[in-house]
């Protein structure tokens, strides 16, 4: 059974959700669409068109609306259906509405809270500015195994500190890595990683960290 606890879960790097795009993700067994209009912040919705249940992550963005790939129904920010191409003269009833979840962009990461009454605060990693995206990696292990793997991995002298349930901070030689931990399902966990500090400013250094995260993924998956 898909769970929707009251907490913030990182689901993507801000930089990888392009303007005018809709993207699929799974959070604790819940399918979501992470989409962005031609400009503005990312939105997180249930990945389901209210019309016929088609996944909205297969949809496309036009004129600030997310349109379903099936019949082109268009949903504006906030979730209300504003356009039904087969009935161009009809003002769609307000009851036709996509299921919208809370979402926030912070530290270069897109976070969502799927709870019906979200009250929990976002993980606190200090000031919002200056974070550079490294990459997302998806590890074919459940969250507990991945957290164990984060703790035992060789970060080059860095130490791992958990920030609440959904994030971890690594301090390694003048560089901070923030890792958002996304429970996908019983067998998979996503990690969304951003970095701050001198060692994250040039592309070469970020490439090296991206490679290191591939090794992290490999080391966790190598454990039975």
């Amino acid at each position: 059974m898909a769970e929707r606890p009251d907490r913030w879960i990182g689901v993507a790097l801000d930089r990888q959700i392009k303007p005018g795009s809709s993207n699929p993700a799974i959070v604790g067994g819940n399918a979501i669409a992470v989409w962005r209009a031609e400009k503005g912040p990312a939105n997180v919705w249930e990945d389901r068109c209210p019309h016929r249940g088609m996944r909205l992550s297969f949809g496309f963005v036009r004129d600030g609306m997310l349109r379903c790939i099936y019949h082109g129904w268009g949903y504006e920010l906030g979730g209300h259906c504003a356009s039904i191409p087969a009935h161009p003269d009809l003002a769609p009833p307000k009851t036709i509405c996509a299921n919208v979840y809370r979402s926030e962009e912070r530290y270069g990461i897109i976070w969502t809270n799927l709870s019906e009454s979200p009250n929990a605060p976002l993980p606190d990693a200090g000031p919002d500015q200056g974070w550079q995206s490294i990459r997302s990696v998806y590890v074919a292990r459940q969250v507990a195994a991945v957290k164990g793997g984060l703790a035992s991995f060789d970060w080059g002298g860095g130490r791992v500190e958990e920030i609440g349930e959904g994030a971890a901070l690594v301090n390694a030689g003048g560089l901070s890595l923030l890792i958002a931990i996304q429970p996908v399902d019983e067998s998979k966990t996503g990690l969304h990683v951003v970095a701050k500090g001198e060692g994250a400013k040039d592309a070469k250094a970020r490439l090296a960290w991206a490679s290191r995260l591939e090794r992290l993924r490999g080391s966790i998956e190598a454990q039975s």
């Binding site: 993507a12 790097l13 990888q16 392009k18 795009s21 993207n23 699929p24 993700a25 799974i26 990459r135 997302s136 998806y138 996908v184 998979k188 996503g190």
Partner: peptide, 14 residues
């Protein structure tokens, strides 16, 4: 086969 785990690949497709 879903593409949930492949953000760079999705952006390249687009």
């Amino acid at each position: 086969i879903g593409l949930e785990d492949y953000p760079a690949l999705r952006n390249w497709l687009r």
